[in-house]
């Protein structure tokens, strides 16, 4: 019953064999080995699984594979890696903006989508943009500072 569907992730083309209804999250993590996108709720309620599709941060746990055929998908791995960190990633390190860090990749994707549209957001704009992302460890204020730092650097 597996379908073969072509998707474009972080600029690279992939053909994946899976049921067309499979949530994108499992394709990213288990077929493509992109483990930075995380399962939190499977229900679009926490933001741990966010990726950027056509400029918008969306829940990959809630996005069926068929719906992203031919679209550009950006994951945290496409944002940057340890060899070449994205300014947001560097800012998370500089601000020590993590406790467990499980929420961090989804939050960075929301923040990256925000900065692409609004390169100099206010504190309130950052909080509004991140409001769908949950963090249980209480790292919110450090994360907001990290986004501000990255915005200044990008400017």
């Amino acid at each position: 019953m597996a379908d073969v569907i072509a998707i474009r992730v972080n600029g690279a083309e992939h053909k994946v064999g899976a049921h067309a209804d499979t949530p994108l999250l499992y394709i990213l993590r288990n077929d493509l080995g992109l483990k930075g996108t995380r399962f939190g709720c499977g229900n679009g309620e926490c933001g741990a699984c966010y990726v950027i599709i056509e400029g918008r941060a969306v829940a990959s746990c809630d996005t069926p594979l068929w719906s992203v055929a031919g679209k550009d998908i950006l994951t945290i791995e496409g944002l940057g890696s340890e060899g070449g960190l994205h300014p947001l990633q560097q800012a998370f390190i500089d601000e020590q903006a993590a406790q467990c860090g499980y929420c961090a990749s989804g939050i960075m994707m929301s923040a990256a989508a925000l900065l692409a549209n609004n390169p100099a957001p206010t504190d309130a704009e950052i909080r509004a943009a991140l409001d769908k992302n949950l963090c249980r460890c209480g790292t919110h204020n450090r994360i907001v500072r990290a986004v501000q730092r990255a915005a200044v650097k990008q400017a």
Binding site: K35, G36, F39, E82, L85, F92, I93, A98, G101, S105
Partner: peptide, 21 residues
């Protein structure tokens, strides 16, 4: 001293139990 685990987490390199394979 900066936390040892944060660079890995910021780069979202696999490292949680959920990522084992």
């Amino acid at each position: 001293v900066p936390r040892l685990d944060i660079p890995r987490k910021a780069a979202a390199r696999a490292g949680f139990i959920h990522d084992l394979e």
